[in-house]
């Protein structure tokens, strides 16, 4: 029998993800990939996988899964998710070994939106266009391009948990300072007072949020002259201002091109911190130069590369 993880009652928005696709955006294929790279890497490192191995990503609630392998080692990261196996409470950010027939339940977290479930050995999945990341809108990658559904049997590459000691990690810190953005590329579509509103205002994260983007609610940002531009390329982090004047922050599943002016673009280092802000949370924006953003990018990548230091063995 193929070792697998049975999705008994998965959460409503569970997909297989990895680092995402590179090289196909020129053909209209979104990059996709995980919303919170550091948490994803830690989940994989906790179970001894390569950091970029495909893992399950879920929003708000992970759901209920059953081990259909001799044994398996799991880790859940992303936030303080309520995790249990039967009556036993398990710690997020720790690895755990489960036996055949045991069920793990992943409920909500007070401090996160996106969570990751990694399994030692990884999931047996065929990459599409160089990646196993799911893009729901185009039905590409992951599990037939769709969300994990009840009854799905997710094939695993390892039939038995590794013998190494269990590990635990320090949770990823997410300070609440303003989100850093590089102004533009279409800041000149906005009057000076609208730009000041954008940087002085506080914006509420709404429930209109998915892997494509998150709508914010705050003081309206008025356009100086129209809100249609000739469609051009967009990237995750772009902050579009459509006719309503309310910002839409594009995220990993965003389309490759868009027709709304982009007042600013969030820096890579702050994308996960933003994506993990729960609905109702307030965010602010702070402009930085491209040069400053590059310094922040380099230290962010160094932090990602050094995540192993957050991990220790505990058995």
């Amino acid at each position: 029998m193929i070792p697998s993880l049975l999705a008994v009652e998965p959460g409503p928005y569970v997909t297989l993800q990895d680092r995402g696709r590179t090289g196909f955006r020129r053909f209209g294929v979104s990059c996709s990939g995980v919303m919170d790279l550091a948490s994803f890497h830690l989940a994989n490192r906790l179970v001894g996988n390569a950091p970029d191995a495909p893992a399950l990503e879920f929003a708000h609630v992970g759901g209920l899964y059953e081990v259909a392998a001799d044994s398996c080692r799991i880790a859940v990261t992303g936030g303080t998710f309520a995790l249990s196996c039967g009556d036993v409470t398990l710690a997020p950010w720790w690895s755990h070994t489960l036996r055949r027939g045991q069920q793990v339940k992943i409920a909500g977290a007070p401090d996160a939106v996106w969570g990751y479930l990694a399994i030692a050995g990884g999931f047996a999945v065929t990459p599409r266009l160089g990646s196993s990341a799911t893009h729901l809108r185009s039905g590409l990658g992951g599990l037939g391009g769709r969300c994990v559904a009840a009854g799905d049997s997710l094939p695993l590459l390892a039939a038995i948990a590794p013998g190494q000691p269990e590990r635990r990690a320090m949770p990823v810190a997410r300070p609440n300072w303003p989100l850093r953005v590089v102004p533009g590329p279409q800041q000149d579509f906005f009057a000076r007072d609208a730009v000041e509103t954008f940087y002085r205002g506080s914006f509420r994260v709404t429930h209109r949020a998915d892997r494509m983007g998150t709508w914010l609610d705050g003081p309206p940002i008025r356009h100086a002259a129209g809100f249609n531009i000739v469609s051009d390329g967009v990237v995750p982090g772009c902050i579009q201002i459509p006719g309503s004047g309310q910002p839409l922050v594009l995220l990993m599943d965003c389309q490759t091109t868009g027709g709304y002016p982009k007042i600013a673009t969030m820096i890579t280092a702050d994308l996960a911190r933003f994506a993990q802000t729960r609905p109702g949370g307030q965010v602010r924006f702070s402009p930085v130069s491209v040069e400053a953003a590059h310094h922040l990018y380099c230290s962010y990548q160094a932090r990602i590369d050094g995540l192993g230091h957050l991990i220790e063995e505990w058995t």
Binding site: G184, P185, D188, T268, V290, L296
Partner: peptide, 22 residues
């Protein structure tokens, strides 16, 4: 914070940053 000024009559080609990687 001070906001970068945008030229009133842009001369093309224009090089516009989208964050730190585009």
């Amino acid at each position: 914070p001070s906001f970068p000024a945008t030229p009133p009559n842009p001369a093309y080609p224009r090089f516009m940053p989208l964050g730190d990687t585009a």
